[in-house]
Structure formats: C-alpha cells, structure tokens
C-alpha cells in the first residue's frame, strides 16, 4: 500500500464522495416520488393506470439500469434532449429505482389488513381519506426497512454514472489509476468511502424504523 499517495489524492476522493452523496439523495427523492406515483397507479381503481404502473415496473426492472442511463444520456440528444451528465444520472437512476420502490410501497400498502379499510369506509371516510389517514400512516412504518434495502442498492448503483463521466467515487478512482497506476489503492479508497456512506445511511434507516415503531 502506498500511503503517501493515498494522503496526496484523498481530498479529491472526499470531493467525489460528496458528489456520490448528492447523487444518492436526489436519486432517493426522485425514486420516492416515482415509487409513490407508481404504487398509486398499480393500486388504482382504473385499469389504465394499473396497466401503466405495471408496464413501468416491468420495463425498468426488466432492463439494465446502465442501458437506461445510456439511452437517456446518449440517445436523448437525438431527440433534442440534452442533459448534463449529473442531471441525466439523477433522472436515470431515480426513475429506475422508482420502479423497485413502486413494488416496495405497494407491498406495504396491501399488507395492511383489509379490516382497516372496511372500518374506515363504514364510518364514512372516502377512499382518499382512508388512504391518507388510515392506510398510509400504517404502511409508512412497514416500508421503512424495505425502502432502506432499495436505497442501499441505489447508493451502490450510483457507481454506474461513472460510465457517463460524472465525477463521483468510481469515476475518480478510474481517473487516478490513469496517472498513478495504482488500481488497488484507488479502488480501496473508493470502496471505503462507499462503505461509510452506506453504513451511515443504514444507521439512519434503523433509527427511523425504531422511532416509527414507538407508539
């Protein structure tokens, strides 16, 4: 291990880690938005929406995220869609993870006992009120952990955007290998920083989950 080298390059990796964190946060937010809409579509009373939801999930889970990213970033300009790499990364990864989150959120909602809906509807609550005040608050608790699994996958998935040259952890490692010829050290630094990000996120999820449980 070349520790001198590590000490010289690590500030660049810290900067790259910050980009990875930003990517992760924005992707999570977009993923949650897509996942919520997707779940609502999949649970809709209307067949059209259910179909749209189902197609969304099967397309985005059924193809590699990297291909989706390439289509957006390299294919987009053919249709006049010019995105900078970071934005394309967030949108590509966010819409992709949203498909997984759709299933997570839907799963939590349908796991709530049917009796809850019946009790809410029999006192006169509308479908929307039932969802808003009775089902979602209970489902939200159930979905924290499985969403945590999605987010864990998403953070690791941000490495893909190196392929469209977003200067994040993986790309930075590759770039320094070109000048230092020390792939082991470079990938170890990136790996360690990923681990820290993922560990911290995991702790956050556990904390949220425990907090939500206390009633």
């Amino acid at each position: 291990m070349d520790f001198d080298l590590i000490l010289r390059v690590y500030p660049f990796f810290i900067e790259a880690a910050w980009v990875t964190v930003q990517l992760s946060v924005l992707t999570t937010l977009l993923g949650l938005a897509c996942g919520t809409l997707g779940a609502m579509a999949r649970l809709s009373r209307l067949r059209v929406f259910r179909m749209i939801g189902a197609v969304y999930v099967s397309v985005f889970r059924g193809t590699p995220a990297l291909i989706q990213l390439f289509i957006l970033y390299f294919g987009g300009p053919q249709f006049g869609l010019h995105l900078d790499a970071f934005t394309a990364g967030v949108i590509g990864l966010g819409v992709n993870i949203g498909a997984y989150m759709t299933e997570t959120i839907r799963g939590a909602i349908i796991a709530i006992d049917k009796g809850q809906t019946e009790a809410a509807r029999t006192v006169g609550l509308s479908r929307f009120q039932t969802m808003r005040y009775v089902i979602l608050p209970q489902a939200a608790r159930l979905m924290i952990r499985p969403l945590g699994v999605n987010i864990n996958a998403l953070i690791k998935g941000t490495a893909l955007v190196a392929a469209i040259s977003v200067v994040e952890l993986t790309y930075t490692a590759q770039r320094f290998i070109g000048s230092t010829y020390k792939p082991f050290e470079m990938f170890m630094i990136s790996g360690a920083l990923y681990m820290i990000i993922i560990y911290a996120t995991g702790r956050g999820i556990t904390w949220l989950d425990r907090k939500a449980r206390i009633v």
Binding site: Q116, E118, A119, T122, V123
Partner: peptide, 29 residues
C-alpha cells in the same frame, strides 16, 4: 360516504386503527 355516516358497524375483530390513540380512533371520522 354520506349514508354510511348513519350506519354504525362493529366487527368481530374490532379493526381499531392501531396508529391512533383511543381518542383519535373515536374522533377521526
């Protein structure tokens, strides 16, 4: 939704809202 307000129903398995206090269970609707 209107007519159901006039018809109270009690189930075998209670179906109380577990995330709400007793007070909130009664006052939600």
């Amino acid at each position: 939704n209107q007519v159901r307000q006039d018809i109270g129903m009690v189930f075998q398995h209670f179906n109380l809202f577990p995330h709400l206090s007793v007070r909130e269970n009664v006052t939600l609707a």
